[in-house]
Design a protein around this nucleic acid. Structure first.
Lengths: 361, 361
DNA sequence: ATTTAGCACTCGATAGAATCGAGTGCTAGC
DNA sequence: GCTAGCACTCGATTCTATCGAGTGCTAAAT
């Protein structure tokens, strides 16, 4: 091969050589197998790998490498004389050493951008639709966990008397979010007293951040004080976001496509129904420093056949909720991760803007 | 057969003879086939019917009757030499002439009662959990459409200025529900003006029913008037409940059990994702005066293999939302209808109590 | 005039047997 | 160290045979 033009020392050979460990060649074989299996859901044989990879090796050589990879736990064989399937460990290596850059592909990224440029309105609606967007983008079920109110600025806080013994606590945040909690009182309280407490509360909280509002102010009047004391707990509840369900699940129907066993579909669906579980799952994954949890990695049995992709949301640089994707372990990691990251980043930006600009749109 | 005791002219023969039309005997054959098919999902043959029904007839006789029923469109045959399957028309006859009384069986009814005795808290939570209850009770996916605010009494109505050009409309109802809408103004308005408008609005609305609040009061100050005008549209929006999504879907995972074809599961799920469609579906069914829509009866193609059971909610005797069940056409009609009715009735009662007593619990 | 027993027939479902072929592990030679 | 070659495995596919639940029809029985 004569170098016809001296003017390209390293041609555009797009052989991204990222990963040592496991050996250059064995790695690209693994990569080829995982990619292919993700696409076809069929066990991959040595012949296919030989054809697919750039390295020119015979199937026999590939075969011996594959045997090695199996011994090391990256691959598994459904039965003798079938091709190989990636194990969780295999997928893990794949995502950790992705050759494809994890940043989003331009067309999709653009889609996300224009989506966020167009979507306006209430926060809940934005989150809800983000979730749908992410599901549509990836064809996996998505989850959006709304940020708590911890760092939000209070625009107004009020008490409204409903019954003699029950009072509604209203918290209006400067981003237009409204939260509420019903407080039951031990003894009946007059409306006028509630109103007085409300004024006091509002004056105290207005303009502060949610974190800064405890302790509540006190009053000379015992009756007013009683109301304030009763409200205390609910204020904290609201601060921590325990009051409204703030999980948005998008595209659960995608699960029916992602898994072929109907029983799997059922069990995964039923998990998505339990919002608490979902929230804590995402939190755990994030806390463990991962962005992807594959198979057993999150020690959550019922989702052993799933992979979870998480991207954090942040407001003012602090973590605030998350977006996630739920699919089979053989999911399109590069694309899905890219999408989740893109939506996460973009959504974070809008949340920031929202918060600092004030209200909607 | 000598009447051994003159003292029972018509013994406790539980032969509920409800339905003329179609002929007594043919009806009970149809009934037997439908019941059995609902249970087993297998085509039912003449032999099975002969064994199952009380009437002592040979399979041959049954057979000729079945042939008739098929010609009349109540039954269908998957293929020659298989048993019969009910058609939509067959199911329709079945539910219209239910021998089992549609009122709930006592054990379940009790469950519903104690559930509602125990559940307290925000309206949204009650509805959400009702939906889950209904799904658990029946093993079908359930839907609860929240009542609109039309007949609710306004406890307070306020405007909160968020940005110079955007105002938050807050509506607090006497049942503790809070609704909101963001109103964008054409020109920047000072906070003081918004506050003035808020006071005016609150004074006008407080204590009235949502239906009675339009038209809004007017003001001498042009600035205040401008705000009120801008708010008008959102008030109506809120009144008609267009502002927050008020559909609660329960137990979608049940669908995976109810249908065996995974493709069906997917398509039904994806329909449940579109709340607008679900709401209008239930409304249509109710408007057509039915409580059950089987197969094609609601002209909604994608749900042709489903049956929909609807029970209305009512507040002060006026229709206000609905609860629904979604399952395969071969669903356990008697039990499911009973459950839906029970939950519907009980929930209605709680809603009434809530509204008239005032706040929560 | 029904009802029923009897019978030939249909056709999906089930079970074996045969075959195919993608894939494997191993070995010997390049 | 790589590869060609080869015997071997084993699920998937196809084909055939068989089974049996169920049907429609007819002729006898009530």
């Amino acid at each position: 091969m004569p170098p016809s033009k001296s003017k390209r020392p390293v041609p555009a050979s797009s052989n991204t050589k990222t990963s040592p460990a496991l050996g250059e060649r064995r790695a690209s074989i693994l990569d080829a197998i995982v990619s292919r299996y993700i696409g076809t859901a069929q066990p991959v044989g040595s012949g296919q790998v030989a054809d697919a990879t750039g390295l020119h090796l015979s199937s026999a050589t590939i075969r011996s490498e594959m045997a090695q990879l199996e011994q090391e736990g990256y691959l598994a064989q459904p039965h003798t004389s079938a091709g190989r399937i990636p194990t969780d460990k295999g997928y893990r290596y794949f995502v950790d050493h992705l050759t494809t850059p994890t940043s989003a592909s331009t067309p999709e990224l653009k889609k996300v951008r224009t989506f966020f440029d167009e979507v306006h309105g209430e926060l809940e609606e934005v989150l809800e639709r983000s979730s749908t967007l992410l599901a549509d983008l990836t064809s996996y079920a998505s989850v959006v966990v709304a940020p708590g109110h911890t760092s939000s600025q209070v625009r107004s806080m009020q008490l409204v008397s409903l019954e003699p013994t029950s009072v509604l606590l209203l918290v209006i945040l400067s981003d237009g979010t409204v939260d509420k909690a019903t407080v039951t009182l031990d003894t009946p309280i007059e409306e006028a007293v509630v109103a007085e407490a409300s004024v006091l509360l509002d004056a105290h909280c207005r303009g502060r951040q949610m974190v800064d509002i405890s302790p509540l102010p006190s009053s000379n009047s015992p009756a007013v004080q009683a109301v304030l004391t009763a409200v205390q707990a609910s204020v904290i509840e609201v601060e921590q976001g325990a009051t409204n369900d703030h999980v948005f699940v998008g595209g659960p129907s995608k699960l029916a496509d992602a898994f072929d066993a109907v029983e799997t579909v059922r069990s995964v669906l039923s998990i998505l129904e339990e919002q608490l579980v979902v929230v804590s799952l995402l939190r755990d994954v994030l806390n463990s420093g991962l962005s992807v949890a594959i198979g057993q990695e999150h020690g959550f049995e019922p989702l052993a056949s799933c992979a979870v992709i998480v991207a954090p949301l942040s407001i003012d640089g602090k973590p605030a909720g998350a977006v996630g994707l739920l699919g089979p372990t053989r999911m399109q990691y590069p694309a899905a991760m890219a999408a989740a990251n893109a939506v996460g980043a973009e959504l974070s930006e809008r949340l920031n803007r929202r918060k600092n600009d004030g209200g909607a749109a």
